[in-house]
């Protein structure tokens, strides 16, 4: 029974194994970045950046056809340009980061939709918007695993400055010269994570696997280590469950994965011990000497 429902799809079909590995790579590489986005109160920044990579991917498609490398490089250039420009405007002018990012991502999104709708077909548009997690080939998997490896090693190296910037950016700025470097490397990690995720889940849902597990984990853990572990666990379980639901009930796999992550968020919101609705409703123990 369990073999038929859970193991057999992955044992029998290579495309299911590839989809699972792609989702695990995204969970390991992109979800921890989502945790830091949440801690820095930049959850919507991820969504903005997901839209910002669209024109680069579209130009990559126009130049080289449905080439993974060209679309990735294009998306990375567009995302980095928006991240760097909005970061520069924030540091050089009176405009705050949310406003400068919103301005650049809206321009980028409009440009991307213009390019895709005037030069591509509806199928291309659907591919870019919703991804193709069940059609990941070797090249796509190598790209996803490479980006996840880069993200994991960079996060391990910059862990302390990143945590310090979440908790007290002024302190980081005063005790080291790493503030600006950390900020730009973090934005680069956001772009890299989105470019990897959009191959599988599309630009519209790429940010879902970054933010929803992070938001769910917030109700189960309070320390940064616990948050990272819980978020990655939720992302991997959502990927596995979403792929199995997609296989057994012929559902589109990307939305199934994100909806399972959304369900995990809903359950955590109600039953999570760290600030969930039930935990808040129950009377708390008084502290004793």
């Amino acid at each position: 029974m369990i073999w038929d429902a859970v193991i057999q799809p992955f044992a029998d079909f290579g495309f299911m194994r590839r989809a699972l590995l792609g989702c695990v790579a995204i969970s390991l590489g992109a979800t921890p970045v989502g945790v830091f986005l949440m801690l820095r109160r930049m959850s919507l920044t991820g969504d903005a950046m997901a839209h910002a990579i669209l024109p680069g991917a579209a130009v990559g498609y126009l130049v080289a056809g449905l080439s993974l490398g060209a679309m990735t490089i294009g998306g990375m250039i567009a995302g980095m340009a928006v991240a760097l420009l909005s970061g520069f405007v924030t540091r050089a002018t009176a405009l705050r980061e949310d406003a400068s990012l919103a301005a650049f991502y809206l321009i980028s999104l409009a440009l991307g939709v213009l390019i895709v709708s005037t030069r591509g077909s509806n199928v291309d548009l659907m591919h870019v918007l919703f991804g193709t997690v069940l059609a990941l080939d070797d090249a796509a998997l190598i790209l996803l695993c490479s980006l996840a490896s880069l993200s994991v090693v960079t996060l391990a190296l910059l862990f302390r400055p990143l945590v310090l910037e979440c908790a007290d950016p002024q302190l980081l700025r005063s005790v080291s010269g790493l503030s600006a470097v950390t900020h730009f490397v973090f934005l680069a990690l956001v772009v890299i994570s989105l470019v990897g995720s959009f191959q599988a889940l599309g630009t519209l849902m790429a940010v879902g696997i970054m933010i929803l597990p992070a938001a769910a984990a917030r109700f189960w853990a309070t320390g940064i280590g616990g948050l990272l572990i819980a978020a990655v666990a939720v992302a991997i379980l959502a990927s596995l469950s979403g792929l199995l639901l997609s296989y057994h009930y012929s559902l589109p796999s990307g939305p199934a994965i994100i909806l399972v992550a959304g369900l995990a968020y809903g359950v955590s919101l109600v039953f999570g011990p760290a600030g969930g609705l039930v935990a808040r409703a129950l009377p708390r123990r008084h502290l004793e000497a």
């Binding site: 695990v24 302390r160 400055p161 080291s176």
Partner: peptide, 28 residues
């Protein structure tokens, strides 16, 4: 700030990366 505790973190990251690429071999 960078190096304090970096050894165990990088070792953990290396283990995760190694497992990921083993998964790649399994999947492909």
């Amino acid at each position: 700030l960078l190096l304090l505790g970096a050894g165990p973190r990088l070792a953990g990251a290396a283990a995760i990366v190694a497992l990921l690429w083993l998964g790649f071999v399994w999947a492909t």
